[in-house]
Simulated scan of single mutants.
Amino acid sequence: MKQPLVEIKNLKKYFPIRKGMFKKTVGHVKAVDGLDFTIFKGETLGLVGESGCGKSTTGRTILQLLSPTEGEVLYEGKNLLDMKGAEMRKLRKDLQMVFQDPYASLDPRLTVGELIAEPLQIHQLYQGKERDRRVDELLQVVGLHSYHAKRYAHEFSGGQRQRIGIARALALNPKLIVADEPVSALDVSIQSQVINLLQDLQEQFELTYLFIAHDLSVVKHISDRVGVMYLGRIVELADKNDLYDSPMHPYTKALLSAVPVPNPLIKKERIVLQGDVPSPANPPSGCTFHPRCSECMDICRTEKPAFQEVNGRYVACHLYS
Rank of each mutant, 00 (worst) to 15 (best):
E50G: 08
A149T: 02
V310E: 05
S51A: 08
Y147T: 08
T252L: 01
Q204W: 13
L198D: 00
V98S: 03
D239K: 08
Y14V: 01
A167L: 09
L186E: 05
L91M: 15
Y230K: 07
R89V: 06
A238F: 05
P108H: 03
K90A: 12
K41C: 10
Q127C: 07
P284H: 06
V112Y: 08
R131P: 01
A316I: 03
F289Q: 02
D239S: 14
V277L: 12
G227T: 11
N10P: 04
E203Q: 14
V98Y: 07
C287L: 04
A281H: 01
V29K: 02
I190K: 11
V26S: 03
P182S: 07
D101L: 12
S321F: 13
G54C: 09
V188Q: 05
E50L: 09
A258K: 04
C293W: 05
V112E: 04
L80H: 00
L81V: 12
K41M: 11
H214W: 14
P16R: 04
K55N: 05
H148L: 01
M229S: 01
G128W: 10
L273M: 00
K2I: 09
Q162G: 01
I190D: 05
Q140V: 15
N282M: 14
G20V: 09
I17A: 13
E181A: 08
V142L: 08
I190V: 15
I39W: 04
K268E: 14
A153I: 06
T208D: 06
L115K: 07
V219R: 03
I266L: 15
I122G: 15
G227H: 05
P305K: 06
D224H: 11
C293S: 03
K90I: 10
K129N: 11
D200M: 12
T61K: 03
L11E: 00
E118Y: 02
E181D: 07
L110Y: 12
Q3S: 15
K304S: 14
